[in-house]
Every structure is written in C-alpha cells, then in structure tokens.
Design a protein around this nucleic acid. Structure first.
Lengths: 184, 184
DNA sequence: GCAAAATAGAAGTCATCACTCCGCTTGTCA
DNA sequence: TGACAAGCGGAGTGATGACTTCTATTTTGC
C-alpha cells in the first residue's frame, strides 16, 4: 500500500505514452518488446507494470478515454452550450491525426469496446451526458439523442475520417455528421 | 487454363462463406485452422485456394464489396432516385447483423482499406457515383458530397452501429447520418 | 549512506500459428 | 469402368512472440 517510487511512476507514464504511439501506428500486432524499446525500458519493467499485453492495451485505451472525458468536462463548463458539443466532436476526432485506430485496436485485441463498466468510461459518459443535455436545451442537438448514440457516432466519425483523402473531404464528412446531430 | 474441378469450385465457395462468418465473429486473429474447420475442409485445401491468410481475408473482403456494388447498382437502376441512396446505406449497414467488422478486419490484417485499385473497389465506386448523382439531382443529398466521403460514411456508420445497444438506438444513429446526408 | 525498491535485459519456456509436404481420394473423360 | 491427374486431409515444421526468471546494476527515500 506504500506509494510507488518516483521512477516507477515515471516509467509507467513513459510506457503508456510510447505504447499509444506505437500501437496506433503499427496496430496491436506489434510485439511487447518493440513497445518496451520505444519506451526506452526493459521488457521486465514493462511486464511488471502491465502483467499482460491486454492490460497494457486497456491502459492505453483508458488513458485516452480520460483525456476525452477531461476535454468534454472542460467544454461543458466553460464553453457556449450551443456549440460545445460540436466543438468537442471536432476536437476528439482530430486528436490523433494519423490514425484513430484506438477502438479497432481494442477490438482486435479481443476487448469488447461496449463494456462500459470501468471508471474512465463512466466519467466520459457523464461528461457527454452534460454536454448533450446543454446542447439539446439550446436547440443545438436533436431531442431524441442519447449518450450511447453519441459514443457510437464519435467512434464512427473517427472511422469515417480514415477514408477522407484530403482536408476538404474531411470537413465534408464532419459537416454531414454535425448537420445530422442538429437536425431533428 | 482448364476449368477447375467441381469440388474445387464448391470448396472455394464454402471457404469464403465460412471465413466471412468466422472472421466477422472473432476477428482476424482466428487461426486459419479454425476457418478450415468451420468450412469443413482440410488446412491443405484452404491453403491451396488461398496461398496466404492475407489473400483469404482480401478474398472475403472483395466478395463483400461485390455484393455491395451489386446492391448499389440494382438500386441505382430500379429504385426511386430520391430514396435509393438512403435505402442503400440502410441495407448495407444492416447486412451483417452481429458485427460489421469487415474494414477493421482488413485494417488489422495490415491491408490498406483505402487502396481502391482493385476491380471490386472500382465497381463499387462507380455504382455509388451513380447513386449519389441521382440523389443530388433530386435534392435528396447535399451538393458538395463526393464518393470518397460516402464510402467513409458507410464504414463509419457501420462502426457507429456497433455501439448501439438496442434497435431504437440503432435507428437514431442511422437517422442522424441520413439527415446529415440530406442537409446542405 | 544505506537498505529497499526498481531496473535492464539476456536467456529460456511454452504455446500458437502460418504454411509445407505427401500419401490418399475422387472427379473426369476416354 | 478404369486410369490418372486434380484435389484433398492433416500430421509436421519453423518462426514468432508473450511471458518468466534471474543477476548485476541503478535509483530513491529516509
């Protein structure tokens, strides 16, 4: 129960950071050794922090969710209710430029993305609920929408953007989704 | 150049069919042996028809694209121009009930989904182009849309639906996308 | 400064999996 | 109906990669 040493904390963070980059770039098939190397860390260390590859992947995923939840919360409190939801979606989807492969990453690791029992998932759901409610109250989002749809659309839009060739195409896809959210 | 034996043709079809089902259900990580078993075929046979796992996966994918292209073409000629595009999207996306994991399947196999050089891809693009043009002419789709966006939205919507818990949620997601396609 | 905690990373274990090889079976065509 | 090539099944092979273990070394906290 004693708090971990400073270098342990540092290494854990470095592993997560490197893992995200490598996994997103090369997919879940990359070896743990590769990830350890990218993090500048021995294999033993990696496995002490994350006893299985799956837990490492889940760690990366949950870190991402936490960042999303933080963004959503910030926008929900600071932003204009009428535009906050759209801004969030835009931000979230642009976040990892090269590849938003995080969900398919998880899926191919055999993790069920819809398993929303964890704490980061709960936090994101809650933040999205607030964002959505405010948008609906100010007429910026269709009334029948609920949080699960929002999450789905988030993942889906991110997927859709992978197919966009240029910036114009990207912005058109985004425009379609945003218009759809509004209509109703 | 002699035509293949009857049993060979039959087996090839059975492999493709079983592979689609197993791959969609369990992801690309399933072993080829599992696929062979599902097809009721020996491993040797599987590998004679598809010399590598990647070629098998690509085969499944292209078969799917061909079916999509056929559907699109049929709707483009037979259907009401104003509703054909929406109908197509609805159909395409509902096709594989459990999981429309085909694209992430390919992606995790290291195949670039956006590589549109193959014949089935070309056929689909062409059919979609017709569908889109007719929809735009009858005011059922925003004018600025182009085919790549449509393909992206197809994949994205399919992804989004994976998150929908129940039928109501599914239909709301679909409604968002369809409204977005129209708006403009 | 020292004990405890943590690390690097080499070497090894074990399971898995894509793919090969080859003896047997079956479709085809005379 | 018989011969024979095309096709088949499935045991076997080699590579890979997740995870363990261990020793010598470094880092941290008090």
């Amino acid at each position: 129960m004693t708090p971990p040493r400073a270098d342990a904390i540092r290494n854990r963070a470095r592993i997560l950071e490197a893992a995200e980059q490598v996994l997103v770039e090369h997919g879940t098939t990359v070896s743990t050794e590769e990830i350890a190397k990218a993090a500048g860390v021995g294999i033993g260390t990696l496995f002490r922090h994350f006893p299985t590859k799956e837990e490492l992947i889940r760690g990366v995923f949950e870190a991402r969710l936490q960042r999303l939840a933080a963004d959503a919360t910030r926008l929900a409190t600071d932003g204009d209710p009428a535009t906050a939801l759209a801004t969030f979606l835009r931000q979230a989807v642009e976040q990892s430029e090269v590849k938003n492969a995080l969900t398919s990453m998880l899926a191919s690791a055999g993790v069920d993305v819809r398993d929303l029992t964890g704490e980061p998932q709960r936090a994101l759901r809650e933040a999205l609920a607030t964002l959505l409610r405010k948008a609906q109250q100010s007429g910026a989002a269709r009334q029948d929408l609920e949080v699960p749809e929002l999450i789905g659309l988030l993942a889906g839009t991110s997927k859709a953007l992978e197919y966009a060739g240029d910036a114009a195409s990207r912005s058109r896809i985004l425009a379609v989704v945003l218009a759809g959210l509004r209509a109703g």
